[in-house]
């Protein structure tokens, strides 16, 4: 299991993590499939999570989710999102009883290629300390 604060964009389905779903946007269609942006967090950080297909209706704020073999990368709209993808899976393992941190938000960080490892990314700057799509509740 990896902490959300330690995830780095990569074209690999290798992220196993557990987090709580904090908020969900509107469901829209991408081709034949439903999709929906969500905010998830664990006790270290938050990140935008892209729900796909039936996940959009089945999962609700307050659900504790376990992601296996997920991927953190740019989607078609060029948003940096975590998602299960075709090779990963998401399961609801509980509700409510998990603490979370909304700052930092890993999707609100500008990442640049690592000068030493051309296929890796490093953090360049913080775009926003928290999600701009789902700001913290006042």
């Amino acid at each position: 299991m990896v902490s959300i604060k330690d995830i780095v964009p990569a074209a690999q389905n290798n992220i196993n993590a557990q987090f709580i779903l904090l908020d969900k946007g509107r469901t829209t269609m991408e081709g034949q499939n439903k999709t929906c942006m969500a905010l998830v967090a664990d006790e270290t950080a938050s990140v935008h999570f892209q729900l796909w297909g039936d996940e959009c209706d089945a999962l609700e704020p307050g659900d504790i989710l376990r992601l296996s073999n997920g991927i953190f990368s740019y989607n078609r709209s060029n948003h940096l999102v975590l998602r299960a993808g075709k090779r990963g899976a998401i399961h609801k393992v509980g509700v409510f009883t998990m603490v979370f941190a909304e700052t930092p938000n890993m999707s609100e960080i500008r990442w640049v290629p690592d000068p030493n490892h051309s296929n890796k990314y490093v953090q360049e700057s913080v775009i926003s300390p928290h999600s701009r799509i789902f700001p913290p509740l006042p």
Binding site: L22, D23, P61, G62, V95, F96, T97, V99, L137
Partner: peptide, 26 residues
């Protein structure tokens, strides 16, 4: 009981809003 005790044992004052909303909804 599990949710109320979690709120009163683990959630920091100031971070309770989302938990309260989930509890009320449910």
């Amino acid at each position: 009981e599990a949710q109320l005790r979690f709120l009163l044992v683990h959630v920091k004052f100031g971070s309770q809003k989302r938990y309260q909303a989930w509890f009320a909804k449910k």
